[in-house]
Amino acid sequence: MSNSKFTAGVIPEMQRKYIHKLASQGTRVDGRHFDEIRKLEVTKGYIPRAEGSALVNLGNTRVLVGVKIEPGTPFPDTPNMGILTTNAELAPLASPTFEPGPPGEEAIELARVVDRGIREGHAIDLEKLVIEEGEKVWIVFIDIHVLDYDGNLFDASGYGALAALTNAIVPASRYDLGDDFKLPMQHYPVPVTFAKIGNWIVADPNLDEESIASARLTVTTSEEGHINAMQKGLCGTFTYEEVQKVINMSMNIGGKVREVILGDSNVKED
C-alpha cells in the first residue's frame, strides 16, 4: 500500500539521488557490498521465562522472538501433528510510524512470511509433538516483537524465530506429561530479503534503502539448497533473470546466516 508504515516518512529527493549515485559506484550508504548483510548478533535464551527465545540485532534493527509451548487440541485434518502459530507485534516503541492497536496488514504479512518459511521448510518435526493422537498435541506459539525498526523486519524476525525454536524446551513436566524435552527440529530454513533500487539489487536493505526501494523479494532456503518460500512486495517488478539472481544470492547468504544462528546453540544446549 502507498501509505505503508514501513517507511521513514518523506525521504528527501537528495537522499534518493545520493543512494542511487552510491549504487552506480557499487556501494551503499553504510559502505556495504550489494550482497552483504548488516552485522548479525543472535542472543539465545534472552527471556528465560519463555520456552525458547532469541534477541536479534541486524544492524540497528532489533527484534525479540519468544516461543511458548502449551498442550491443546489438534486440528481435525491433522490429528497426528502438533500445531505451529506465528504472530507479529510492531511495538509502538520501535518506530514513530508504528501505532498501538490490533495488527495491521504489515504485521500480518510479516508473521505469515516468517510462518511460511518455518512451516514449509519443515523446521519443526510436528509429528513428534503428539501427546494423544486426535486428542492432545503440543501447540508452538512464535511471537515476534519488533523493538527497533531500521529496515528488513522479515529477515531479523525469521532469524529470531529460527534461533528461538532451536533453543526451545517443551515443558512437559509442567503439565504432568512426562519429562521436558528439546523441541524436535529437523530443518533450518533461512530467509534473505533483497530490495530493488533503480536497477540495482541489494541484500538486507536498511530503512533508508527500504524507503526508496521499488520492489522487495524474500527467499527462504533450506540447508539442502531447496527453496521453501518466497514473497515479493511493493509496487515495482522483477525480471525473471533478477529473480534467478536473487535466489542464488539468498542461498549463499543463507548458508552463512545459518552458521551464525546454529553456532551458539551447540555450545549452549545440553
Binding site: 511460511r116 512451516r119 514449509e120 521448510g121 519443515h122 523479494l217 533450506s222 539448497g225 531447496h226 527453496i227 521453501n228 518460500a229 518466497m230 514473497q231 515479493k232 517488478t237 522483477f238 525480471t239 525473471y240 529473480v243 534467478q244 535466489i247 542464488n248 542461498m251
Partner: peptide, 27 residues
C-alpha cells in the same frame, strides 16, 4: 506477470523445490 514486458509483479512460493524445479515452474 505483465505479458508485454514479462516483468513479475507478484511472486509468492511455498513448499519445497530445487532451483531447477522452481525456475521451470516460473517459465
Amino acid at each position: 506477470i505483465m505479458p508485454r514486458t514479462k516483468e513479475i509483479a507478484l511472486l509468492q512460493m511455498d513448499g519445497d523445490m530445487t532451483y531447477e524445479e522452481l525456475t521451470t515452474a516460473m517459465e
